[in-house]
Design a protein around this nucleic acid. Sequence first.
RNA 1: GCGCCAGUAGCUCAGUUGGAUAGAGCGGCAGCCUUCUAAGCUGCGGGUCGGGGGUUCGAUUCCCUCCUGGCGCGCCA
Length: 550
Amino acid sequence: MSSSDSLKAEIGRAAVTLGAAADFTAVVERPRDPTFGEWSTNAAMMLAKPLKQSPRDVATKLIAAMQLEAVGISAAEVAGPGFINFRVDTDALTRVLPEIIRRGEQYGRSDIGAQQPVVVEFVSANPTGPLHVGHGRQAALGDAISTLLMWTGWKVSREFYYNDGGGQINNLQKSVQLRALQQVGQDVAFPENGYHGDYIGEIAADYRAQHPADATLSETDDIRRFAVAALRAEQDLDLKAFGVVFDTYYLESSLYTDGNVEKTVSVLLASGFTYEKDGALWLRTTDFGDDQDRVMKRSAEKGGEYTYFVPDVAYHVTKWERGFMRAINVQGSDHHSTVTRVRAGLQALQMGIPHGYPDYVLHQLVTVMRGGEEMKISKRAGSYVTVRDLVEEVGRDAVRYFFVMRKGDSQLVFDIDLARAQSEENPVYYIQMAHARLCGIFRVGGIDMTTIDGALTDLSVLVEPEERELIKALADFPSMLAGAATALEPHRVANWLERTAGLVHTWYHKHHVLNEPEPILQARLVLANATRLVLANALSVLGLSAPERM
RNA sequence: GCGCCAGUAGCUCAGUUGGAUAGAGCGGCAGCCUUCUAAGCUGCGGGUCGGGGGUUCGAUUCCCUCCUGGCGCGCCA
């Protein structure tokens, strides 16, 4: 139980003695201005109306009714329109430091998820080209969300869905085939909507070298398999460069071979929500909130195949049947039209899947700037920046940080020149530097940090304002993390890191540790060690390294 | 035309789920290295929170409406 929880409970108890409803719960938060104290509540303003008294009167009575010492409060005062500000005594404040060190890499973890299984699907790029910067944002975001959920007690499975079927794959196969034919001197036209990237020609050359038996370059199945395998291998390298590891790769093609598509179709047919029109099979998704009905199976003139929609629904059925009570899809906002469609398809099955299944985290697309010009991200035009290019140019940590430092809802301009120019004053270096500096204290002092646990140290000497602010930030880490996980918003971790790193630099600059009198030295070593640990934990949540020296 | 997202300092963006005098970084200006890393620190200036209504003790936050930008609206994926 954190100190704010016990304070909240005490406010609630006191409120009931004044006549508040038994289920009254106060809001306790950090006041904006640190001179107001450590905690603040608006309870008196919330109670003013039901109790028919002025907020300030309620506040005064509330304070009188509370047992402040019992919850570590040294002073309480009424402020403004009726806020109550609380001051925490130093002993209660510093109590968190030994706890942080004791829990170490576990500090910040909680069991909100109760070990329930959740699948987080992200990247899910078609194997038709290398991963571009948009995928990079998704990889950083999806990976951080997954880690956040793990930290808050969910059993997380990271999943990559490969669209290795459908028209784009046929397009890929044709593109490779035509490039191969051109390479052996045949005068064949290359379609405008084919894949124009240089990598297509490379794959074509590799195919010819490894399949000498296919002299006429007509084995389309072989070409398709070869091209898909080659691009999957490329994407794996991209992901490896980025440090993202998936638990499962789910192949769209397996939904056909395993019979899941047919099974889903038969259930939908039996549901009564399908109909035929213009020779095609439709699903009445408008019955479930979609803005138009969707084609399941194309008419004979259009090839008679299932649309992407059907295996997509079948895929999400497997998520449910594999035991994932919760599913989160991280996608670019250009796919947002699939949200209601997939949910509608799952509802039409009437198999007890919840209405909001799956959850979606949609992120706005990334605009890439280079040399002051916007680069068009188009796989078919073959002009775009890959994840690997980016990692090689600015480093993995910096790329990851830049992609998660902003809320997914806001558009992200990734100016490559700026990212490189900023590398010396990059926020990620600023944060990592704070960690390295703290490690430096132990290194220079010749002190083994593993011996600093604070269990028997007198921490009451940590009275400087900069120290109290820093300790509060460390104490807030678990609730910040829980909030970020609940909202699926990793950028909150980044914001916390920047703020806390700033507090570290301020403290470091103003107060020394080594060569201070023994009691202060010991107490500050405890603070330094605890801070170092929490910074490292926060960095690891975002998939960033915590260097001990830079 | 309809749907989703966004609009906050010169620029890039936060804003703890409705709280107090709206913040940070960068840029600008002025300072700080015999002291644990100057990859850093301190101070100053900078605002019609897109506009207008509404809800209430209280709105950047919730509702309505308009303006601007991005994305989507296929028998593509």
